[in-house]
């Protein structure tokens, strides 16, 4: 009988412990929960529930929240990140001021905004890498407007029906006669502000990288 009871204990321990593993929506058992729930503000781990982790709270926080709470209650959505203060101007590491021409100033930008970069092989090579990251999937590897997102044409099965895959219509062919002659300032402005059906990519690509892409696009247009 002792054997049976020992076996029973071992099996129940095994069953309890297998529920510790993660999978699906279950995050698994944490070894040191305080270490997984950052008190400091961390990206994508904001906890807005003031009572989260009450069971292991040992400190009396002034506003009475529990251990895991790490949100800023004075910000919208209790976010930790804030927009920069009004009337302040951010400069990048080169001291460049933000680009402030409006979306409708394309003609002005094309004529007057000049690239601060030299056309060295290294910068064009950088531009190629950046182009392949940010532009390629719509404008295509050679700029012909035939990237996978733009060209589509691949049929996929949806509930047993053949359907055209959603594609983005109206991607410009950068090598077309009309666009062949545009200036780097024009390309920079369009990446920053968008044009036609293309939306602004200013938030994704830094100004320096946009100028590098413009340099590379000019080589595609030759």
């Amino acid at each position: 009988m002792r054997i049976v009871s020992t076996l029973f204990v071992a099996f129940s321990a095994a069953v309890v412990l297998t529920s510790c593993g993660a999978g699906g929506d279950n995050q698994g058992t944490e070894y040191a929960p305080n270490m997984y729930h950052s008190v400091a503000y961390e990206p994508y781990s904001q906890i807005t529930d003031e009572d989260a982790g009450r069971w292991l709270t040992s400190i009396d926080y002034p506003d009475g929240h529990a251990e895991f709470y790490n949100s800023n209650k004075f910000n919208p959505y209790r976010m930790n990140m804030r927009e920069s203060a009004p009337h302040t101007v951010a400069r990048n590491k080169h001291g460049w001021l933000p680009y402030r021409l409006g979306k409708d100033s394309l003609a002005f930008a094309a004529a007057n905004v000049k690239s601060p970069l030299d056309s060295t092989a290294a910068i064009i090579a950088d531009g190629k890498v950046l182009y392949e990251t940010y532009c390629d999937h719509c404008h295509g590897p050679k700029g012909k407007g035939d990237g996978k997102v733009a060209a589509g044409g691949i049929k996929v099965e949806v509930n047993g029906e053949q359907k055209e895959r959603s594609i983005y219509a109206g991607v410009a062919n950068l090598t077309s006669d009309a666009l062949k002659g545009v200036s780097e300032g024009h390309i920079f402005h369009v990446i920053t502000m968008g044009k036609g059906l293309m939306w602004s990519h200013g938030s994704q690509i830094s100004p320096e990288d946009r100028w590098k892409i413009a340099k590379y696009v000019k080589t595609l247009q030759k």
């Binding site: 076996l7 071992a10 593993g21 058992t29």
Partner: peptide
């Protein structure tokens, strides 16, 4: 049982396979 116990102990604090909705 021994294997299950050891595996269970090793999975504590490991979130491999976590795929939340």
């Amino acid at each position: 049982g021994f294997k299950a116990v050891i595996n269970g102990l090793y999975s504590i604090g490991i979130q491999q396979g976590y795929a939340p909705k």
